[in-house]
Design a binder for these strands. Structure first.
Length: 108
DNA sequence: CTTATGACTTTCA
DNA sequence: CTGAAAGCCATAA
């Protein structure tokens, strides 16, 4: 319809249940473009503040279950903090946050 | 139309 | 094994 790829991403992201996470590639695949993982990340990057409060962007991580954000305002530290408050265990390795995808990966 | 961007992914040395 | 490079693709200008 008239929904942009970004709109679909936001809508899909909102459907991620609490306590679960999804990968960029997974979301891209669900939207019909398995190779558009970057678009997902970019969409979240330019996401308006209003949507930031509605979309669980923190539940979207890369394929290794690692947090890749480079935003200062929305740092990996903050993201990990939120995820931990949702009942997700974070494994810290070399200063990076790893999440057990086998356990917490969203299964639509 | 061409370029540029990028919170990704895969391939190659 | 690790690290760098290229590929991908929607969107903006």
């Amino acid at each position: 319809m008239s929904e942009s790829f970004y709109e679909k991403i936001y809508k899909l992201a909102k459907m991620i249940p609490r306590g679960k996470v999804a990968t960029y590639g997974q979301i891209a695949s669900l939207l019909g473009s398995p190779r558009s993982a970057r678009i997902v990340g970019y969409a979240l990057h330019i996401m308006p503040e209003d949507l930031l409060k509605q979309v669980p962007w923190q539940r979207i991580i890369n394929r290794e279950g690692r947090i890749s954000t480079t935003c200062r305002e929305h740092s990996a530290n903050l993201q990990a903090k939120i995820l931990r408050s949702e009942g997700i265990k974070i494994n810290i390795k070399n200063g990076q946050y790893f999440i057990d995808l086998k356990k917490y990966l969203w299964h639509p």
